[in-house]
């Protein structure tokens, strides 16, 4: 195994992690600030991807598609929050899970109604197709590099939003004591709608960016949703920093596990059973990681123990 192959895999892990971060940032904020388990977060990811595909094929511009994905997911988020989610904050988690699971079914069926059951076409823009030559002879996809850069920019933006702005102060306050912040005269329901829309927009953007290199189809959000839950459990619920660290840990573990484990078993097993055991074990790796983190820190890496 060469060093450049290893570094390329690290970049791949980072790209996967950054994508997971966009997905889990919204999920962890909504869970942390509002105490809501939102299973329909994956549907917002799907809505973003479908909006991008539809607008990109209509206008011919990938970038307009990206803008459309942000807007469509945010608007869907606002509508869902006002019409349904708002009624669930005071209910227990089982009611929330049931209601948001119903939303998954509704959104999936709606997308099939509008766009049909077959996957849609969304391709990367001309300017980002092809590869970038990096030092050490690494050839890396320009588009994946863009995902990494965009993801890091958004992470930096979110950190400054949470730590430096007035809105961030309110979000943090809402996280630790929502009755008190309401008593201080902050319009808590507007704050909630805003946070929900922000999370939705990030999920939509992730869906659109990933849709261009994967496939835009009904049900694309649910596998990612499961990973996003793993990320926020590892990172600690409600923590943006935890979501970032957790996402990158999961991204690296999954990518490097898929790559290294089969070659590791080949050292002392015959190739076919090494491939078998390696592939089976690598698909379990992130869950093993999650279990290990929970044994070591039961509330996640950056979780708030006081809660």
């Amino acid at each position: 195994m060469s060093i450049s192959l290893f570094l390329e895999q690290v970049l791949n892990g980072l790209q996967f992690g950054v994508m997971l971060f966009l997905m889990s940032a919204g999920l962890t904020l909504v869970f942390g600030v509002m105490g809501l388990i939102n299973l329909a977060h994956g549907s917002l990811y799907m809505i973003g991807a479908f909006a991008a595909a539809a607008i990109a094929s209509w206008t011919g511009s990938f970038w307009l598609g990206l803008v459309a994905s942000l807007m469509a997911a945010a608007i869907a988020g606002v509508i869902v929050e006002i019409v349904i989610i708002r009624r669930l904050y005071k209910r227990d988690h089982l009611d929330q899970v049931l209601a948001t699971f119903a939303l998954i079914l509704l959104f999936s069926e709606a997308m099939r109604w509008i766009f049909g059951a077959f996957p849609l076409f969304l391709d990367v823009p001309e300017i980002l197709s092809g590869t970038l030559s990096l030092p050490l002879g690494i050839e890396y996809s320009k588009y994946r590099m863009m995902i990494i850069v965009v993801g890091i920019l958004i992470a930096v933006g979110l950190f400054s939003l949470i730590s430096k702005t007035r809105l961030g102060v309110r979000i943090r306050a809402g996280e630790s004591d929502r009755e008190m912040i309401a008593a201080l005269g902050v319009d808590i329901s507007k704050l909630y709608t805003l946070v929900f829309a922000l999370g939705a927009a990030l999920a939509g953007l992730a869906g659109a960016m990933v849709g261009a290199i994967q496939s835009v189809e009904v049900g694309m959000g649910e596998p990612v949703l499961i990973l996003a839950f793993v990320v926020i459990v590892i990172g600690g619920i409600g923590s943006i920093k935890g979501a970032l660290v957790g996402a990158i840990l999961v991204g690296l573990t999954d990518t490097l596990g898929r790559f290294l484990l089969p070659s590791f078993f080949k050292i002392f097993l015959n190739p076919s059973s090494a491939t078998d055991i390696g592939s089976a074990l690598s698909s379990m790796m992130i869950y093993i990681l999650m279990a290990a983190v929970l044994i070591w820190k039961p509330s996640g890496l950056f979780g708030n123990n006081a809660k």
């Binding site: 192959l5 390329e8 895999q9 791949n12 892990g13 790209q15 996967f16 996809s141 994946r144 990933v210 290199i213 994967q214 496939s215 694309m220 596998p223 990518t255 898929r258 790559f259």
Partner: peptide
């Protein structure tokens, strides 16, 4: 699985 970056690198 939808992302094959790791496999394509190999």
């Amino acid at each position: 699985q939808k992302d094959y970056a790791a496999e394509i690198a190999q």
